[in-house]
Amino acid sequence: MSYALIVAEVRRGVFEERNLDAIGLCSLLDKESCLLIPEGAYDINDKLVNVVAKVDAEEMVFLNPLNMVSILDKVIEKRGKPDVIIFTHSSSGTECASYMAGRFDLPVITDVSGFDKEGGFFMKSYYSDKIFGQFRQAGDGTYVITVRSGSFKEFVVEKSVSAAVETISGITISEERNFIEYVEEETTEVDITKADFLLSVGRGIGNKDEIEDFMELADMLKAVLSGSRPVIDKMWLPKARQVGTSGKTVKPKVYLAMGISGAFQHIAGMKDSDCIIAVNKDPEAPIFQYAHFGVIADAMKLRDKMKVVLKG
C-alpha cells in the first residue's frame, strides 16, 4: 500500500499546530495520509487525514526515538512500508527522524520548507536561509522528512469523510532511555534570550515614566520587555533586559523595537530575529535597514493607540 506516514507531535495532551505542516506536505505529495498518534484525547480534525493510527502508548513513550523503532516495526507489519515518513522539524521530530534514518537505513532530508512537484525535489535551508538546496532522494524506497513549521499549513485539505481509525499495539518499550519528568525553566529572572516575542524600547521613549506604560503594553501583548543600552544605563530597566553586544543577543520570533534608532551595537544583538518590526519617528533611523516591517511614528503615540485597539 502506498501511503505517507505522519508522526504526530503531541506534548502534554496538545496536538501541536506544526503537525498541520506535515499534513499539508502530504497533500502536496498526493499520498494517502496516515497520522500516527498516541492513544489519548487529542483535539484533531479527523477529516484532514485518511487514516489515524493510534498507538497503544503514552505520549512520553511515543516521543522517544528508541520506542519509535518498535512502533515503526509494528506499523510496517500492519500496513506495509510507507513511501515517506514525515516528522515536524522540532526537538522531538528531528530526534526521531534521524534515529529512524539510522536504524532503518533510510535517506533523510530535514528542515524542508518547500516542495517542487514538477522537479520532485524538496527545498532545504542551508547557511541560515541564505541559500536553499533542492534535494531529492537518490534511488527508491522509503525516505524520511522533517518539515519546517509554517511551511505547508496552507495546503491542508479537509476531506469529505472522517479518517479511518487503526490501532497499533504490542510495542516494546526501551529500557535504555526513560522519561523522568517535564521541567519548566526557572523564571526567577526574566531571560530575554528565551522569549518568543520581545518588545524593546530605546532612548526614543524619552524618560523613565514611560516605562510603566510600555510594560503594560508588553503584558497585554504577552511580550517580554527589553531595552537598548541607554535605557539600561539610565537604570530604567534592569541589566538582564539589555539587548546588544554589551547585553544579550536575542533571536525571538518577533522583535518589536520602539524608539530604538538602531546603533550598531544594538543591531548586532537582535538582527537574527525572525521578524523585526521597528517603530521610530525618524525615517532615517538605521534600524529600518534591518527591519522587516517599519512604522514611522512616535513610539508613545503608537503605544497608546495600540492599547486602545487592544482594549476595544
Binding site: D105, T110, D111
Partner: peptide, 12 residues
C-alpha cells in the same frame, strides 16, 4: 543544518 548526523550514527 541537517541536525541528523548524531541521530543516524546512534541508530546505526
Amino acid at each position: 543544518q541537517f541536525a541528523s548526523v548524531g541521530g543516524i550514527l546512534a541508530g546505526k
